[in-house]
Computed example of a mutant assay.
Amino acid sequence: MSTAAARDDFDNPWKEMLEHAFPELMAFYFPDAHARIDWSREHVFLNTELRKIVRDAESGKRIADALVRVTLLDGTEQWVYLHLEVQGQHDSDFAQRMFIYNYRLYDRYSRPIASLAVLADLDAGWKPDRFDLEQLGCSHRFRFPVVKLLDYADRLAALETDANPFALITAAHLYTARTRHDPKARYGFKRRLVRLLYRHGWDRQRILDLFAVIDWMMRLPDALEQALWKEIQSIEGERKMAYVTSVERLAVQRGLQEGEAKGRVEGEARGEVKGRVELLARLLTKRFGPLSPEIQARLTQATSDQLERWGERLLDADSLEGVFDDH
């Protein structure tokens, strides 16, 4: 399995964009509900209230969700529970969980809750939108609006031209799924989406936010990442707008690497390996002097096992040859 396929991760960027662009999310995925909300009034995220009810983060569920207070056009206040199921697989308990969250919120706060769901899995035949209970003549029917990202697969061309940022995010999700085992194809799609970031007249922060989502979703092998980075530099040079190539971009990259180094993803996370390479390089330089380009290249291309082995040898080796002699 390729590095990109093994480490696709959707939850954190979805969570960020859910909070940064909630009105646009509602307009794109739930236009009927969006049309009933007075967006001139402030909408407020009730994350403290939600965390008292939803404990999936503790049980390993990969979701992005939010509880939001909005005002309808008729002036009434309503609470919206938005649930993004991003674990990428069929879950037979999903509808039941939606029902449980809804009644727990109602039970605690004595107010009706609008529950909405976005599904990012790849099972075309799975689209739960209801949960029913019946016993001895007593029945309970729970229905909730649900959007399936896979349903947009035949609208990719339209997604690329849509000015709503969630159209581009949906396209990125679909291209990521389509190229799970084809990093070269993923590189081509990612490059195309990055170019589109500059064509909608979005402000600098919106471009940075969207790039962070696309970059997180569409992981590439290091060589292709470097090629894409050069492409981005060229694009921003042409347009005279140093957005992604700014200090903020570098901070995002460092943050991802540090998170990965702490075990937030499985496998040999690039951030973890890079951190170990930098540490070993510093120790080698301190003991044996400046490293040649050949040694530096060998370090950057090393596997996790090699880095561990060389680090152990550093304690007793009398020379660089002693550290790197694998025979």
Rank of each mutant, 00 (worst) to 15 (best):
S246L: 04
F45I: 08
L197G: 05
S115C: 13
A297P: 09
S139F: 01
F324S: 09
Q96A: 09
L220G: 07
Q233H: 12
W310M: 07
A157L: 12
Q306P: 10
R199I: 02
D132C: 06
M17N: 09
A6H: 08
D318G: 03
F30Y: 09
G259M: 10
A5N: 04
A297F: 00
M241C: 12
L46G: 01
R313F: 02
H327G: 08
R192I: 04
A227D: 13
F211R: 02
P128N: 05
T71C: 12
P183L: 07
I53E: 13
A281L: 01
S246R: 04
E42G: 03
K127E: 05
M241L: 11
R62A: 12
R186A: 09
E225H: 14
D209M: 01
F166A: 05
E231C: 14
D325K: 07
E278Q: 15
F131Y: 13
S92N: 03
A95Y: 10
L224V: 00
R130C: 10
K52C: 13
K184L: 04
A33E: 12
Q135T: 03
V80C: 14
E266H: 08
E24L: 15
F30G: 06
R192Q: 13
Q89W: 03
G259E: 08
W126V: 03
D129I: 00
K184S: 10
Y187T: 07
R195L: 13
F10G: 01
K230E: 10
L18K: 10
A177C: 07
G255I: 08
T176D: 07
Y81V: 05
L307M: 10
E225D: 14
E16N: 15
M26K: 11
G237D: 04
L197A: 08
D325I: 02
L250E: 12
Q205A: 15
I169M: 14
A35G: 11
V323D: 00
T245W: 04
T303Q: 12
T245L: 08
M217C: 04
D38T: 09
E42W: 09
W216H: 15
T303I: 08
L208A: 06
E321W: 01
S246Y: 02
A242L: 14
G311M: 02
T179K: 02
D203P: 07
L119S: 01
I113T: 10
Q89M: 05
K240P: 00
E294T: 06
E268N: 08
D182A: 13
H43W: 14
V194A: 11
F10Q: 07
A117D: 08
H173F: 10
L150N: 07
Q89V: 04
R178S: 14
P165W: 01
H181F: 03
V194L: 11
